[in-house]
Amino acid sequence: METTEQLITRLAAQARPVRRLRPPMVRAVLWLVGMGGVGGVAIALFSNLDVTIGRLSEPLLLAELIGILGTAIGAVIAAFYLSVPGRSSRWGLVPIPFFVLWMASSGDNCYQDWLVHGTDGWALGESFACFRFILMTGVPIALSLLLILRRAHPLAPIRVAAIAGLGVAAMAAFLLQFFHTFDITFLDLAVHLAAGAMVAAGSALVGLSRRRGGFMPPARPM
């Protein structure tokens, strides 16, 4: 049976130089800039940018975009901070005001649509295409983010992966706005949320699998 003294001697003998992680904010900004570049190219090449820019004159849509982008950036930054030991858990609160703004403006948008169109406001618009879009963009973005977060071997992997998942879902929803140039219905919003929740839950599951020796290895030596 190894004593604590023996363990210390063994660990000290194994001490090799390590490459320090850069501060969480630097890592988060680098990742966001990289993703922003890829997303910007995709928007420039494939989206209906003129229509989207025209729609920005609607204050409600502008508020929604700020909410979505704020949620994405806030949650990604929070995930980088929470992945490192000793950082305040209050970082997890950063995306919440933006998330509330997103939900409120989106919900109000649906409500206005419902007032104008009546029961048609509950109809399913282009929801399935949006659902597919969020999942297809969300999954590769989530994988790249989780791979980078994995370097910190987070002590609370489920929490980190879940908040990262929220950021990714918001990022996919933000990109969707450039390809989704019409007002959404309540059902559309529900489908968007379901797709986002699937991305976030999938990410949390990745965090969980870390405990079982899966995608994210445990902090203890294997």
């Binding site: 660990l11 320090r20 030991p85 002590l155 902090a219 203890r220 030596p221």
Partner: peptide
């Protein structure tokens, strides 16, 4: 101690 060893690059 084992965890510290594993995550010492995060300090």
């Amino acid at each position: 101690l084992l965890t510290v060893h594993r995550v010492r690059h995060t300090y």
